Computed example of a mutant assay.
Amino acid sequence: MQIVNIHEAKTHLSRLIEKAARGEAFVIAKAGKPLVKVTALDTPAAGESRRLGFLAGQISVPDDFDQMGSTEIEQQFKGEI
């Protein structure tokens, strides 16, 4: 994996981004210390959409999901636990 310093990254940002978009991730370093990894996002291709509801019928959410654990949370706020 290519490591570039901040100055080089600023100077050649467009070229580096194009490489990352093609799958060639790189690391930006400051004073030789790696800071961030730049990599392409896993997004749908143009014209493609993510499938909504693909888990329909496979999972269930309890009717009281927004109240689950409320007793324990209240006790923690009061310092009882």
Results as ranks from 00 to 15, higher is better:
1 M>A: 10
2 Q>D: 05
2 Q>N: 08
2 Q>C: 06
2 Q>K: 13
4 V>L: 01
5 N>G: 07
8 E>G: 10
8 E>A: 14
9 A>V: 00
9 A>R: 06
9 A>T: 00
10 K>F: 11
11 T>Y: 15
11 T>S: 12
11 T>L: 13
11 T>F: 06
12 H>K: 15
16 L>Y: 12
19 K>V: 05
19 K>S: 13
19 K>N: 07
20 A>V: 00
22 R>L: 15
24 E>R: 03
24 E>D: 14
25 A>M: 13
26 F>M: 04
26 F>I: 03
27 V>L: 03
27 V>C: 04
27 V>N: 01
27 V>Q: 05
28 I>S: 10
29 A>S: 07
29 A>C: 00
29 A>M: 04
29 A>N: 01
30 K>Y: 13
30 K>D: 12
31 A>R: 00
32 G>F: 00
32 G>Y: 03
33 K>R: 15
34 P>W: 01
35 L>P: 02
35 L>Q: 15
37 K>E: 02
37 K>Q: 13
37 K>W: 03
38 V>M: 12
39 T>D: 11
40 A>I: 03
40 A>C: 11
41 L>R: 09
42 D>C: 04
46 A>F: 14
46 A>S: 08
48 E>I: 07
49 S>Q: 10
50 R>C: 13
51 R>Q: 15
52 L>D: 06
52 L>N: 06
52 L>Q: 07
53 G>H: 01
54 F>C: 08
54 F>R: 09
54 F>P: 01
55 L>Q: 05
55 L>W: 08
57 G>W: 03
57 G>Y: 01
58 Q>G: 02
58 Q>W: 06
59 I>S: 04
60 S>I: 10
60 S>L: 12
62 P>F: 04
64 D>Y: 04
66 D>I: 13
67 Q>A: 11
67 Q>T: 10
70 S>P: 02
73 I>T: 05
77 F>T: 09
78 K>D: 12
78 K>T: 07
79 G>I: 00
79 G>T: 01
80 E>R: 01
80 E>H: 05
81 I>S: 05
81 I>T: 11
